[in-house]
């Protein structure tokens, strides 16, 4: 992978790379991509792409809430949050 493209991809993934990392990763990522490029050899002419393997269409649900099981899911989930203010989840400013 070209270094410029690597740096751009890293930026999109919010990853900070120093120069050494760019050097090594450029080689490693290229090797990974090469592995995947083996798939390009398969002849897929006329085949519809497989986007999922659930083998099922129209798996929908009714517009109904869960039957009240008495547990308190949202509170349990909030308990796992590292920093809170009231019921808000607090993170460092992102603007």
């Amino acid at each position: 992978m070209d270094k410029g493209e690597l740096v751009k991809t890293a930026a999109l993934a919010k990853l900070k790379l120093d120069e050494n990392e760019v050097e090594t990763l450029a080689i490693e990522v290229s090797a990974m991509l090469e592995n995947f490029s083996m798939m390009m050899e398969a002849d897929v002419e006329g085949l519809e792409p497989t986007t999922q393997t659930l083998q099922q269409e129209n798996r929908t649900r009714r517009d109904e809430g869960p039957i009240d099981s008495g547990d308190n899911l949202s509170n349990d989930l909030l308990e796992r949050v590292p920093e809170k203010e009231g019921r808000f989840i607090v993170i460092p400013n992102v603007i």
Binding site: R59, T60, R61, R62, D63, L73, S74, L77, L78, G86, R87, F88, I89
Partner: peptide
């Protein structure tokens, strides 16, 4: 705030979405 949340809409690994007919 954060009363209507569950593993699916919080993006917990392994939680699967299912489509609302309405």
């Amino acid at each position: 705030p954060n009363t209507n949340i569950c593993p699916v809409c919080l993006g917990y690994p392994g939680a699967l979405p299912s489509l609302n007919e309405e």
